[in-house]
Structures are given as C-alpha cells and as structure tokens.
Design a protein around this nucleic acid. Structure first.
Lengths: 346, 346
DNA sequence: GCCTGCAAAGACAGCGCTGTCAATTTGCAG
DNA sequence: CTGCAAATTGACAGCGCTGTCTTTGCAGGC
C-alpha cells in the first residue's frame, strides 16, 4: 500500500538503512558494488523517499517557497513554471505563497510559513522583494532568500538577487517611438509602490532628455497596473487639446486599456495613435493589433533565482545575476500621421 | 530560533504533550479550564505546529494536491485561489501539480505525488478529471479525490464531483445570437480531447435545432484552445462565399483570435460580425469591444470541490454539486447588419 | 607482524507530532 | 459514602528519515 521505506530497501539489499539513505541522496562514500546493489533494491521495490520524514529529520525540508504579491495571472504562472522547473531538476519541492507585500507583519508571516514546513529558503519576487525592512528581519531570522528586483546595476547590498534592468528596456521602447518620429509621447504609469514602475518612468524620461524632447507633466499619468487605469488614462490623454501621438503603458494590461480606449474613440491603432506596453504577456500577442512591448522572461528569471537559492542553501557562494528585457516591435506602433489627416469614426 | 514545540507548550501549561495536541487540533475532550491554560501557553510561546511532523505522524498530512493540465493562466490562477481559500480556511496545506493528462502513467505519477508527501487527497480539474481509466486506478490505490467535470447532470458513477453544465451555457450563448437575428453562426471548437468542448458544441447544435436552423458543417471548425486557432479559423469562416454573421469561440482565447482576425480584415465588431467567447477571462473584459461570454467562476467551483474533498477525507458523506455558467452580454455581439451595407476598410 | 590512517558501513538517537490504550478524575445514582 | 460509567488526561511507541559517532575492513609503512 504505502510505498516501501528505507528499511525495506535496506533489508532487501542486505545493508543498513543509513547506507540506503546515502545512496538515495547521492553521497560519495559508498563503494560502487554496494551502490549498485542498493539501486537495484530501490528499483525492485519502487522506493520513493518520504518527503515529510526527510524534512522532519534533516536540517531543512528540501523545499523552497515562492512568494508573490501580484495580480497578473500570466506573470504568476510564468514564475511558477520557472520555479517548478528548477525545483524538479534539483529534487526540491515547491510551496507557493501569495501574500500582501504591504502587511506590517510580512516578515513574521513569512517566518511562520518557513518554520511550519521547515522550508529551505524563499524566492521573493517584486514587490515583496522591495520591502527592505522586512528583508532585514527575514535575514535576522536566518532565513535564506534570493530576491528578484528591478535595478540598472548590482545593488551590492549583501542580499543576493537577480536584477532586471527595467529602466533600460523602457528607454529602448521610448527610443523606438522617438525614432519613429513621435514627440508627444504619453506615459501611463503603474504601481506607485513598485520600484520597477519608477525605473520604467526613469527610462522614459532619460530617453526624452537624450533626444532633446522636453518633459510634459500633462502627458504622464499615475495609476495602477490595471486595465481600467489604461483605459481612463488614455482617454484623458486623447482628450487633450494637443493629444499625444503615442502612448507608452507601463505594462501590457495598461496598454490593453489604452488600446481599448483608442479603439472605443474610433481611432485606428497604430495609424492614428501608437501604443506600446511592457511585459510581453500573451495579451500583447493576442490583441489586435498586437502590442509592441518589452519581453521579460519571468519564467527564466525565476528559474535562475531558484537555482541561486538552492546553491546558496547548499553553502555555495553565488554571484548576483542580471537580465535585460528586450524590445519586441509589433503592429501597435508606427510613425505618427500628420495631424490634419487624423480622422475619427464611430 | 526554531519556534516552540508541543513539549515546550506542555511544560509551560503543566499538561502532557498529547493534551496540547488535542487543543491544537480542536478536539472536544478537553476540559474548558485546561483548554484555556493551554491556549494561553500557546499564545505566550507563539507556538505553531510543525506541519511535517504532523503529517509524518498522523494518517495523512492535512494537505491536498491541486492537479491541472491547462495552458490557460487565468484559469489556473483562479483555481489556485479557490483551492487556497478553502485550504486556509480548513487549516489544510496545498500542493500544486501541473501534469500531462494524457501520459499513460498519469495514475502512477499522481500516486507517487500523493505518497511522497502523504497528501490527504486530490482535486482533479479538467481534463485530468476525464481520464476514467486513471481515475479507476487512483481509486484502487485508495486515494481520495474530487473531480470537476463538464456534464449536464449528475453522472452518479461513484466518483464524487462538481459538475458544470457547459452545454447549457453554450445553448444560452447560441440562443442569444439567434435572438439577435443571426442565422449563419460559425463555431470554433477547441480541445478535441476535452469533454467540455464536446458539451459546448452540443449546446450550439441543440440551440440551432430548437430554432429550426439547419447545421452547416462548413461553419464548424476544429482546433485547439489557442489564439491561433481562433485567428485562422475566423479567417477561414470570413472568407467563405457566404460568411457567418456571428462567430462563437469555444473559449475566450479562441474568441480573441477571432476578434483579431475580424479586425485585421478591416471588419468592425460587432457591426460587421458578432463574436462571442466562453469563460469570462480578463481578456474578455479587456479587449475592444469587450466580449460577450459565459461566466465560469473557476475559483468558486474549485473552492467547493476542495471543501467537498476535505469533508470526504474527514469521513463525512458528500453530495455532488452542480454549477451553471451564466451568460454575460457585452459589446461584441449585436444584430447582424444587412449584407449590402457591409463594408471593408484597409 | 604490528600499528597508523582512511574509507566504508552501521548503530542509535532523535526530528515533533499523533494513535492507541491505560490511568486517573469526575459526576452522580443508590 | 460507595460504586461505576463517562469524561479527561497521560504514557509510550512509533511515523521514515538523517546527523553524529562508532565500528569494521584493509592498504601501507616500519
């Protein structure tokens, strides 16, 4: 019924349980013929280690936690995929943990989460990874973690991380629009409390500055990472006396809102107005026209972070790593059309 | 460091560890003053049960597995939310398990998954829940599970389930289109191997029959639950000599593809062609125009299934339950426009 | 032949909890 | 008061594995 245990295998192979344990965990100090004998017994009995027993007995449970606070389903799934891939590969388990990154008790909640299941460590994604005070506390509890953050360069603050250069990608998108000939470019900001959002705004501003285009406050609109903000923000922009000829949404959902707003006004994208997003979510591929955006491989990023974490847990020293989102040009951006020829329908 | 254990609490409260265990698990047979004393000690020491120890010791780990084989991110997240909600509420843990529902070893993979972590049971979502042979095997391993399936009525096959009437919802959508005046209605089918897909096709056919509209094979196109099928399928339909005036996509992603196809051809939705989806995914709200669709609360459905499973694990007898998706009419459907007035733009 | 040193294998004691069953206390009729 | 069933509580043995320490086996140096 319940599958075979170490002892069963040990008896069959004529060795002690500890030796079977050694073989199962790939330890070196087992003579080759013994190892073969044990492996055969394991196979014959179809033995599978009991993860609970291993976790209870050992120093930790060979399981990591993936922590996120994000409303974006595609993002979460991509992250889970990345984490699961690395975990399967390294024979670790995975526990998922949605949470509220702004809860004052964040660090304590996570500590309990870790202790209750004896987790080996945590992968912290944005924006949880940006709550420095909580990270300090987590570190003081001796809980290993690796963060994924938005930064142009290695923060070197002692907390290991994978850092993603959002500024650079936003710069690339803005440059793309500028090179098409756009000058009035609207910016729909998202996630006031997300560092990534500030970085993207920075990239936008830097590009305008480098191209000698003056910033216009009325073209930058604050809001959240949601469709509705994109819709209303774009409406507001398009209702200006001098509306922008291009709109850059801080993520694909905002851009989707902007796209809907433009189309609902009877504007043709990209001929009447260009729209760009950020993320390369499936939405950006499935809308019409498909969105110009920045490709962010959340799955690969999280997979790297997970491998780093496991390496750290094993006591290896790890280097921080960086990722650069890349520009993906699709049908939603084109050169601006002379104002006179702009038309409305509907 | 590591949090307090049962023994610590027991000492502090001046009782045996077993009594603390009883209080922690909410068992009846503890006198009230003893219970209070123990609860106080638990609070003072900030005691949290160690889930691994509990799982190893007890008959099962108070943790369930959520099994899915689905490419749709929104769906998965909704299901996870529902399962997590119920699990948190019932003090159960949750393990997620993406899998390949068509693997011949499905039942054995799941058995190993259950044994390795001593899982209490499984929630099986479509299409895993439709692999009857595997379910038989799972049952023969004495693994408790609850399925979510697509069916018009209680299957009464001995395997507990939550059943969702896809046929009825598809009937409602088709009826909605017929009542708007559409006669040539295209159907883009998805997921050949999903029972839900067959049910939706059935709803479509039944509605046409009831309205005396003859079925036309050339208006029904097979494919998968993906955007691309929607796009190509819709193109094919729209290129017919007598194209449909409405297209029903078997899920929102297919409908999104159809929407993009129509728009890329220069057609105006819904004036030139109506489009309906199925699922009420965020996409259906975020496209322009937003999609008429069928609302399926995957979160609530999975939450119910999870509660049923836990009740079953506790030895209670449970009744199967049913859910009906409901019609959500949005901007993508409207009465057909006379053919002569149909227009294209470029 | 004897001792040293190292690799290989085993013994044993838990990890923190629950199931089982025995011991103790309590409540209450007689 | 006494007796007895019912209600509480506790003792104890694991659950299946790993960490630590010990023992065993064997090659090499004198």
């Amino acid at each position: 019924m319940g599958s075979a245990t170490l002892d069963d295998v040990a008896k069959r192979a004529g060795v002690s349980a500890k030796t079977v344990s050694r073989v199962a965990n790939g330890e070196r100090s087992v003579r080759d013929d013994t190892r073969q004998r044990v492996l055969r017994a394991i196979e014959q009995l179809d033995y599978r280690p009991n993860l609970l027993a291993r976790g209870l007995s050992g120093a930790h449970a060979y399981t990591i936690g993936l922590v996120y606070d994000n409303p974006n389903a595609y993002y979460i799934i991509a992250m889970q995929q990345g984490a699961l891939g690395a975990c399967d590969d390294m024979h670790f388990g995975l526990q998922i943990r949605p949470c509220n990154s702004r809860a004052p008790s964040l660090a304590e909640d996570l500590r309990d989460f870790v202790h209750r299941s004896r987790l080996s460590g945590l992968v912290l994604t944005t924006p949880v990874s940006e709550r420095m005070a909580s990270l300090q506390r987590l570190a003081s509890y001796h809980i290993p973690f690796v963060r994924i953050i938005s930064a142009a360069r290695d923060p070197r603050d002692g907390f290991p991380c994978v850092y993603v250069d959002d500024r650079d990608a936003a710069y690339a998108i803005t440059t793309h629009l500028l090179q098409l000939g756009h000058v009035r470019i609207g910016f729909l900001r998202g996630g006031k409390h997300h560092h990534a959002s500030a970085e993207r705004l920075k990239g936008y501003k830097d590009a305008l500055r480098d191209y000698g285009v003056p910033l216009r406050e009325d073209l930058m609109i604050e809001g959240d990472y949601v469709f509705d903000h994109g819709f209303r923000g774009a409406r507001r922009l398009l209702d200006l006396a001098e509306p922008p000829t291009a709109i850059f949404g801080c993520n694909d959902e905002i851009a989707a809102g902007a796209l809907a707003a433009a189309q609902s006004t009877g504007l043709h994208v990209p001929y009447d107005v260009s729209i760009a997003g950020f993320e390369d979510s499936p939405f950006s591929r499935h809308s019409w026209p498909p969105l110009t955006t920045a490709r962010q491989r959340a799955d690969i990023i999280v997979e790297r972070a997970t491998r780093m974490l496991i390496a750290r847990i094993r006591g290896e020293t790890v280097e921080n790593e960086s990722f650069n989102p890349e520009l993906v040009v699709r049908g939603s951006t084109a050169p601006p059309r002379p104002k006179s020829r702009r038309r409305k329908r509907g």
